[in-house]
Nucleic acid binder design. Structure first.
Lengths: 242, 242
DNA sequence: ATCATTATATTTGTCCTACAAATAAATTTT
DNA sequence: AAAATTTATTTGTAGGACAAATATAATGAT
């Protein structure tokens, strides 16, 4: 546990941000937030390390405690710090995706962003084959098979069934961040496609690939076969953008 | 432009969060933040819409103005709102990746998160082939060729050269969010691999694929060939995890 | 001496008041 | 009607106060 309480004032006074005048000038809260993050980086803080208390930070940065609190509130939201009565602020393990999670509201996003999210899911689906084949276990395959067996009509797949099947694939990659990321993208993906689908002609795929097909290839096929099948499985989506 | 000022108090009082007692109980700031985001979603707010002023929100939510300000500060950081003197808060276009950007500090991330980030870049690299082939232009290819030509030794590629080449590929996908996301991942990817590389035996790839090879395939080859080549290009990284 | 219990000190969390700064809107002038 | 000026409104920042929740210190029991 480090106590790096002497660094803040230096950071704030030498902060390069003072020499830039961006389009919207920065509030004191913005400045304090930037200073604190820079301070964390330059001091090599690790989870568990203690920070100076709010009053001390306010004094060193020549701002009121309110401004410090507003900046700290932001960092708290990102999971970068935790507050302890008497002990003060402690560095914590950030949450990589909490920011994305909080802004993922289709009403607020631009058309460009919505399109980007839609495509991002497709990029990610096409990218996981190596991981699936390298990390699949007997148990994974059994569970995936059970999911597929519980899905009645392979041609008409509900959202829940999509989420169950693909969610299991994501889990099988052994990459929690990836799983969480894809899971975050799905509702918006669906929102985008629903909007598109309602406005366009129906796209027919000659030989659609089902969840069951994907399962079989994952069980006994090759990476390349799986990826090709995944592309066909997602063809209706690819056809809407490429 | 909508004025939805009657919804907030209802949201706060009926907020399901009041019935849950999570491990760490929520501060008022957390609650206000959650209420506001829910309010945005349920009211279907769009960029440009006006929000009630701080004082009014504080009254309706039965909290002090400071608490409202702390919550709003968070939303401001995410780009979801902008403040205007006299006019008040206005809904804005969120920034999908600003949260990720702010927490991407390897010292703070867990080993699991670092591994996830490392792999996520690989997943994404393997997933973009379809987009590259569908969207490449003559100009893109010329620019990519110039980048490759400026890179002297195909076997010893600097970080800057990596960023230049791969960054151009990302740009060619036509997906700005993807480009920005991958660009965010690169320093941490490098940090992870540098740590691994310094601790492990050197991995030799029998027939390494260079940037120039990738360029040629992208110009005149097929999606499958490109992806296979990309896998080989990244083989040293895949070998370190799979 | 060690462990458990209690008390105290410290910091955060929330509230309040005040006023400067930056517009957006209203009013006046041309 | 358009431009210039003034006013009103809201945000941004400051400072003070005190309750709540521990972390730390002190005390008591074994």
């Amino acid at each position: 546990m480090h106590d790096h309480c002497t660094g803040i004032a230096n950071i704030m006074t030498t902060n390069k941000l003072d020499t830039l005048e961006p389009l919207g000038s920065l509030s004191m809260t913005d400045r304090v937030e930037n200073s604190l993050r820079l301070y964390f980086t330059e001091s090599g803080f690790k989870p568990g390390d203690s920070l100076p208390n709010e009053q001390e930070m306010a004094q060193k940065l020549n701002v009121s405690r309110n401004v410090v609190r507003e900046a700290l509130s932001r960092l708290r939201m990102l999971g970068m710090i935790e507050a302890r009565p008497r002990r003060g602020m402690v560095i914590a393990q950030p949450d990589l995706l909490v920011g994305l999670e909080k802004v993922m509201n289709p009403s607020l996003l631009s058309q460009d962003n919505l399109k980007d999210v839609f495509e991002l899911r497709l990029i990610l689906e096409m990218g996981i084959a190596e991981f699936l084949f390298a990390r699949k276990t007997e148990q994974d395959l059994n569970e995936l098979e059970a999911i597929v067996a519980s899905q009645n009509d392979a041609r008409v797949v509900s959202k829940e069934e999509e989420i169950a099947f693909h969610g299991k694939l994501y889990e099988m990659t052994g990459n929690d961040t990836f799983k969480r990321f894809q899971t975050l993208l799905m509702p918006t993906f669906d929102h985008v496609f629903t909007g598109y689908y309602n406005q366009s002609k129906k796209i027919e795929i000659p030989n659609p690939v089902t969840h069951h097909d994907l399962f079989k290839i994952l069980k006994t096929g090759t990476v390349e076969e799986f990826r090709k099948a995944m592309y066909t499985h997602l063809a209706v989506y690819f056809a809407s953008i490429l």
